[in-house]
Design a protein around this nucleic acid. Sequence first.
DNA 1: CGATCAATTGAGCCGTCTCAATTTGGGTGG
DNA 2: CCACCCAAATTGAGACGGCTCAATTGATCG
Lengths: 243, 243
Amino acid sequence: MHKRIALASDAMRCSTCMLNEICLPLGMPNQDLSKLDELVKERIRLLKGQALFHLEDEVDAIYALRTGCIKAQLEDASGQVQITGFLLPGEIIGMDGLLHNRHVSHAIALEDSEVCVMRLDDLDRISATVPALQQQLRRLMSKEINRAHTLMMNLGSLRSEQRLAAFLINMSQRLATLGYSPYEFILRMSREEIGNFLGLTLETVSRLFSRFAREGLLKIQQREVLLLDLDALYQLAGVEPLD
Amino acid sequence: MHKRIALASDAMRCSTCMLNEICLPLGMPNQDLSKLDELVKERIRLLKGQALFHLEDEVDAIYALRTGCIKAQLEDASGQVQITGFLLPGEIIGMDGLLHNRHVSHAIALEDSEVCVMRLDDLDRISATVPALQQQLRRLMSKEINRAHTLMMNLGSLRSEQRLAAFLINMSQRLATLGYSPYEFILRMSREEIGNFLGLTLETVSRLFSRFAREGLLKIQQREVLLLDLDALYQLAGVEPLD
DNA sequence: CGATCAATTGAGCCGTCTCAATTTGGGTGG
DNA sequence: CCACCCAAATTGAGACGGCTCAATTGATCG
């Protein structure tokens, strides 16, 4: 299905990873950081369109995205899909499967991607001697709960233009955190995927992009976005951005 | 603000609590259950309308609802509110505050209620010697993530009648788990609160109740519900119920 | 028994969806 | 390299679901 790669162990170290200010170790004391070095023993490379895991797969690990972009989506018995998030590098995926150690969602790469594998038994073993790791995991799960609650608020109370504005601001902020431009980026997902995520149809999303462009808020050509008036977008969204 | 009560320690024991098959200890091995007995040292009684905590309050504990009903709601800078859940006995509240140890939501009693206080330092201390507790907490947080994701799906893709049907089924199931009738119950929340939770207006909720009653799916008088045709409600919702 | 808040019901409007046609872009093979 | 094909995106027209605003009825509680 996908390619597992076991690199030389020193290539895996959280303590020397470029993303360690953003990813799982975020905010952990430096002296504990080195104890994480046994955590990631393996990475997985995914080609665009490949799944990291599917519904019902057994959970034996959670994952940190290193490069690329992954969508997380639920799927119910009737095949109806709901995208619950688009992950960027440094973000953690798979925590929704820890209830019964079965995944309840699909994780699919939107472009060629690479993830760090953090096995549950390693997490447990290291947590036993590094209390900070346990608390870190708790914080990360709490963050995901907050994110989902905020998305509920957006879906429940914002109008379409506000939802799209909030989405763009959110992408902009997260990309800025990664050191990319907050103004100019490429959307890795289709209009349909954006629409599904935001509870809108793809036509509505397309029309909104066209309207925003007409009003001078942004330029958009296919999936290339250039945000021209961030202030106006913030004002439109009216709420603190998603994440 | 609210009344804290320190009962005799044997009155607090998870191991002898009526709810221990449903609440935090759910699924934990019996030999570990007794080790939880130091966990709850205090309970809090809330009168209808009182808050267990507010936005921005410092988090030093999470709570298990013993009796009553509590709503959890976000509130953004502009005062806009989103109810993220209605809690029933045996359910855990406060896990969304573990990111920065600040609550990001309000918890307000919809009727006179009582919660068990589980202090974070006690949780950490006991987890250190009872690995099952740590895993249990992880499961509970994962469950909350799933619940929120499923609600996103409902808000994003269901029509109003489907949302209300899913809501009623969900209440029915959770009440049945507690040993109450799945057919007949009292809603502790107003039409407005239901509407807010489901991303609808109170008028729409009211009209739907009237329509469901006209169609013979249920009887409703104010907040007293009698479900007459659960099958039809399931079919309407079309998805697995919320939780 | 009035006062107040919650819930119901109606009428009309607006935003988003649906269905359909067209354009654009990217990939593939001749 | 161009012609072709297919998927993605755009745009339009019309329908409909849920919202807004408003009036009325029904509970609940001093």
